[in-house]
């Protein structure tokens, strides 16, 4: 097991390297002087010169990359000219709302999508199956922000059950925190539920005809234990894989949802930074999200051995 973990960790290095190169090149590919862009519109020529010096822009590209990467690895993402702060600080401030939203969404998704997928597979071809699959195609197609505004209109404006927008930190009270998290999480969960329900149905269907399922039924086990203990366990690997891959969809959704609900998280920060052309922040946020995505998928890979003891490395 341990050598396997080591090998998988090493395998992520080239992926991370490509991500770093792409993000690094992002600023170098802009039309114009990167130093002037980072300095912003109100900078003096001294500011620009200082930034050029600091980034080593007069040196060869490879050397610049090494300098930049070295700073990154020490947690130095540079300074945001727009927010007038260290980017690393900025990101730390914005982590809580995003983390809360993402966690809530994943919990909600798993709780809804897996039972729905199992039900659809179990009652294959019936109206129940058709409703679940229809919802799944619909969930893929309706944009996150349209769902967001529909929910706001229905539950916050017409029915006035929940607050319209905003975010409340956890330390300022649990009630307000949860209340303001419900609509965004449901919004974000729709597309994710569609994805997971679909794959759950497909992988359950595949297992359902296996001999051991027939045996389990033949020995008199009722349907629920058959589904949970025999079917779901064997269908788990593809489901967990898609949850991992789906994190990319989730991250994209976070960017949009936070904008719709005015949640001051990392997604909102991304959009604000792009609109302000605050490149150090844009680079940092893209890097952070990508690293999280890669790490989650690494965990997913490692989880296979627990989910399916037949998989050995």
């Amino acid at each position: 097991m341990l050598p396997y973990v080591g090998r998988r960790l090493i395998a992520t290095i080239p992926v991370m390297a490509v991500v770093a190169i792409v993000v690094f090149m992002l600023l170098r590919l802009t039309t114009g002087d990167p130093a002037a862009i980072i300095a912003g519109d109100n900078a003096t020529s001294q500011d620009v010169a200082a930034i050029r010096e600091r980034l080593g822009l007069d040196r060869p590209l490879v050397e610049q990359f090494v300098i930049w990467l070295g700073r990154l690895l020490r947690g130095d993402f540079g300074e945001s000219f727009f927010f007038k702060k260290q980017v690393s600080e900025l990101i730390l401030e914005r982590v809580e709302p995003t983390l809360a939203l993402a966690t809530c969404t994943i919990v909600l998704t798993v709780a809804l999508a897996i039972p729905l997928g199992i039900l659809a597979a179990w009652r294959r071809g019936t109206w129940l199956d058709r409703i679940v699959m229809g919802f799944s195609v619909l969930g893929f197609s309706v944009p996150v922000f349209v769902i967001g505004y529909l929910l706001i209109y229905l539950f916050a404006i017409e029915l006035a059950w929940l607050p319209v927008q905003g975010y409340q930190r956890l330390r300022d009270g649990l009630g307000g925190f949860v209340e303001r998290l419900i609509l965004p999480s449901v919004t974000l969960a729709v597309v994710f539920v569609a994805l997971i329900a679909r794959i759950t149905r497909a992988s359950v269907l595949e297992v359902l005809n296996a001999d051991y399922v027939r045996t389990a039924r033949a020995k008199g086990l009722s349907e629920l234990p058959v589904m949970v203990r025999h079917v779901l366990r064997n269908a788990a690997v593809p489901i967990v894989t898609v949850i991992g891959v789906g994190i990319a969809v989730l991250i994209g959704g976070v960017v949009v949802t936070e904008s719709v609900y005015s949640i001051p998280g990392l997604g909102r920060l991304t959009v604000d930074a792009v609109l302000a052309r605050d490149y150090p922040t844009v680079q940092a946020v893209i890097l952070v999200f990508s690293v999280v995505y890669v790490l989650i998928n690494l965990l997913v890979d490692l989880s296979y051995t627990f989910l399916d003891p037949r998989i050995r490395y």
Binding site: V23, L29, G252, Q283
Partner: peptide
């Protein structure tokens, strides 16, 4: 494939947002 894996590691909305901000 390493390059493609790297590109796929960046969530597509973020990559697109980063790219449109260039020009």
């Amino acid at each position: 494939m390493r390059v493609m894996d790297g590109l796929m590691a960046i969530p597509s909305i973020l990559l697109a947002i980063g790219l449109v901000s260039l020009s």
